[in-house]
Design a protein around this nucleic acid. Sequence first.
DNA 1: TTTCTTTGTTTACTAGACAAACAAAGTTTC
DNA 2: GAAACTTTGTTTGTCTAGTAAACAAAGAAA
Lengths: 387, 387
Amino acid sequence: MKQTGDLALVKKMNTAIVLDAVLRYAPLSRAQISERTGLNKATVSSLVLDLIDNHLVADLGPGASSGGRKPNLLEFRASSGYAVGIDLGVNYIRGILTDLEGGVVAEHRLTLKAQNVESVIPRLLECIETLRARIPACPYGMVGIGIGVPGLVNESGTILFAPNLSWPEVPLRTIVEERFGVPVTIDNEANAGAQGEQRYGAGRGIANQIYVSVGIGIGTGMILNKELYKGAGGFSGELGHLSIHADGKPCRCGNQGCWELYASENALLEQSAPLGYHDLDALLEAAGRGEPEVLALFERIGEALGVGIANIVNVFNPDVVIIGNEMRRAEAWIEEAVQRTVARRALAHHRGKLQVLFAEQGEKSAVRGAAYYAISAFLGKMKGSGV
Amino acid sequence: MKQTGDLALVKKMNTAIVLDAVLRYAPLSRAQISERTGLNKATVSSLVLDLIDNHLVADLGPGASSGGRKPNLLEFRASSGYAVGIDLGVNYIRGILTDLEGGVVAEHRLTLKAQNVESVIPRLLECIETLRARIPACPYGMVGIGIGVPGLVNESGTILFAPNLSWPEVPLRTIVEERFGVPVTIDNEANAGAQGEQRYGAGRGIANQIYVSVGIGIGTGMILNKELYKGAGGFSGELGHLSIHADGKPCRCGNQGCWELYASENALLEQSAPLGYHDLDALLEAAGRGEPEVLALFERIGEALGVGIANIVNVFNPDVVIIGNEMRRAEAWIEEAVQRTVARRALAHHRGKLQVLFAEQGEKSAVRGAAYYAISAFLGKMKGSGV
DNA sequence: TTTCTTTGTTTACTAGACAAACAAAGTTTC
DNA sequence: GAAACTTTGTTTGTCTAGTAAACAAAGAAA
């Protein structure tokens, strides 16, 4: 049985349109919504009434007249509910509490000593609990939880494979949903980061954005037409395993010459070990001092990043590519090499409008994206519910 | 002004659902449509009436009873109109006439001596005219024209760049539309081929399919979720310029080590020239005789194809990859190498369900896909028109 | 003051989906 | 072979949501 069209669908669509207009252009009047969306004034009035009943929109009262009756300005009620976003890292858990516009109202971060499931899950639940306790009085309370994890996740929110956590299959969504009784969304850290930058960072308002999360490995999140793209079966974005040297080093994935062997934080540290540097902080500090070998190393990594980005550009022709996660911190030392390499290798036609940027949300790209999942699921449901 | 929801939209959606059911499961009764789609019986009856008025569906009269009143079976009226599909090659024009189900009812092929616009366009129009003359009497006549071209095309049907034709920008859609007065769709040959295989060939019923057109260069058409995917701005699929040897040969595109430098027909002929073979036919014949150098050459090309296909698989995780265009003719000599290379290099998780196949429609993939564009545009419009 | 504008609600109407009743045309059972 | 049951597809009446047009409220301009 397919999705059939009926009146409920029409109302849902139009409610979404009205709410979207309020979100984007608030404060604005019913008349402005009508004009902007093409919906009839009466329709807008009726839908706005529903939204006010649902505590999603507030009537602020009269604004300035433009030569006739004063308009009644409307506003999105961002504080009717709160969402929790979690970035589950390899050795930390970062959590935030946001309002319905995604604005951060509280943060909580904790460091993980052990990686095993038995010790991490309780701390994760505890982190969520801490944030929940800080939700102000409001109609909806905690509307949902979004979690970004360093691994592959299937549609039902089970972690299938988390190389750096070495977990077995964990049905994380079920576990968290049963504990808190609100909808939970789980996704890969790179996808969450892509959302975070798309909604609140460097990708705002840009239709086609590719987020490259350069950490221990390389992960990617692709936003195509403002929507997160998931390949067939929900798994894709394994761009870290694009081979850029067909006859190159063997990778644990079975292929040879994978991009992440040349451009990840791991690749950087492997090459810096002989120089006596064993973490990114030390390297950044050395680069700051102007150590020539370290500068050359960063340049090499920047070039390798550029090669892979040029490939991505040739395949997807995005408007913007955003480099995030740990490697973003080396912006000052790699940017020039990245830009130069992409400019030389990407197809002329695609290069025109393309921008290569660094994550604006810094280490918060993924948490904010995770919180957005929860908000988006909640608002989607509200529009659907009609009443 | 965005797309708002109204009753017309609902009707359009439901009409599409009903028509789709008839296309897929004909002959079937109104009651079966209702059950299958979840639409109310009364709704189905009313929509079917409209479709019959529009000559898109025919009532065949009573079928066998299943223990009650006999059903009235319905059928799609494929011969209510005809579409023209054109494959504009570098040295040929291939045209077909199809009914609304895509069945080929006439063909016309001609060879091009010159490639310049001035001589090709008149011959193209002449080819369409010849096919139009063969349309049987029917309610709609020629419903549209689809054309596949060897180059980049923008949304308004202008050929931007056709390397092997060396044409300037040509507003082909406008030209053909003005001449024949029916909707014209222009797209890249690889996209058309992907559609042809998706609808009538090896990709039938498969949601995520990537068609690799290996000819002079390499082009690709991607079907994701049964829909042709076009990247940002409508251009994408330049997978031929994915670099597989970052330090490899320079390509005319500016990059180095592009896939098509190692796996296209051009690459094949370049490597076979020292052996004294200058076209694919001669090579196929030599391979048939068992010439060891030629067999080794095909194996090398097969491996190079496999490297690129493994990359594609890692990015998109498709259900099937279909190799088409000229190189498909070497299936017997390259298949083993391709399969072996992909199996070794693609991520284990993606390899499971993946199939690598050769185009079933042979040299007709692109023409049939082109005709499908015209049919699809026509049926889309009919559903919209309501009446 | 009078007239004009702008905003947002009310009223009357329309299209299309749906449920339920029903008619038509079978088959099965006794 | 009549009565009972089934299946199909139409008819009838109801409901919902969107729209146009009229209108009321409130202010600006002349």
